[in-house]
């Protein structure tokens, strides 16, 4: 229905739109965001609602004031979603492009299975960050919990703080850059040499996340796959 979509566009791309969840339902808010083709939206009183601003497909700008529940910004394409608060399980899960920025902490499985775009977390992230990552870039300014980047296939994870147990277990070709301590590495994940190409890549990711030169790429260690579990090998049976 192009005419309806045009109508929404005209209404929304010329002004900031306030959406107060004290009076609007989650479904009303998501419907407004999902139908918009441009514009900036401010969402108030999310009160931990689930799947807020999920499934956006256009380059709109959404700012959420407060803490959100599960799957905020999930499946995002092109939109920029900023959360002025904490995010529950699976923030930006399976996002395809665009940007999701959590100003507080993120719970489990942040950025899980993400294919593209940028997820920035200003605070800490808990367990299973970037699990099965497939191309999304994640920058965490704090520390991360256990089992991050489990089976991560592509994309980059940057952590300014520490990482928990079993980092990068069964990892494929995702790249992990950790500035602090790693409690333990998962199976088939090893520390790797930082070459010039990696320093350039890391600098670009830090810049994209708004982190200045006070954070030096030389302070990071790169981790990635030892590539010993890629193909079935009878000697590895115990590890499968």
């Amino acid at each position: 229905m192009p005419s309806v979509r045009m109508g929404v566009k005209t209404a929304h791309d010329t002004r900031n739109t306030s959406l107060d969840m004290a009076s609007l339902s989650l479904r009303q808010v998501n419907e407004t965001l999902q139908k918009a083709e441009a514009g900036a939206f401010a969402v108030a009183n999310p009160r931990g609602a689930h799947a807020l601003a999920a499934g956006l497909t256009t380059p709109i700008d959404v700012t959420i004031d407060g803490h959100v529940g599960y799957y905020c910004g999930g499946m995002n394409q092109e939109a920029s979603v900023t959360i002025n608060g904490n995010a529950g399980t699976g923030v930006a899960e399976n996002m395809m492009s665009g940007r999701v920025h959590v100003k507080g902490d993120a719970s489990q499985s942040a950025g899980a299975t993400g294919c593209g775009g940028l997820l920035v977390i200003d605070g800490n992230a808990s367990a299973r960050l970037g699990i099965s990552l497939r191309g999304l870039d994640i920058v965490v300014k704090g520390s991360i919990g256990h089992m991050a980047a489990f089976m991560a296939q592509a994309g980059n994870i940057v952590v300014l703080g520490d990482a928990g147990d079993a980092l990068g277990d069964s990892i494929y070709e995702a790249r992990l850059f950790v500035r602090g301590k790693v409690k333990s590495l998962g199976t088939d994940c090893i520390a790797k040499e930082m070459r010039e190409e990696h320093r350039t890549l890391l600098r670009g990711l830090l810049d994209a996340a708004g982190i200045g030169p006070e954070v030096d790429v030389a302070e990071f260690t790169r981790y990635g796959s030892a590539r010993t579990l890629y193909h079935f090998h009878i000697d590895n049976l115990g590890s499968y």
């Binding site: 009160r47 931990g48 529940g69």
Partner: peptide, 8 residues
């Protein structure tokens, strides 16, 4: 179990 239980 979830933040929404604490929100009020």
């Amino acid at each position: 179990s979830e933040f929404r239980a604490l929100a009020a």
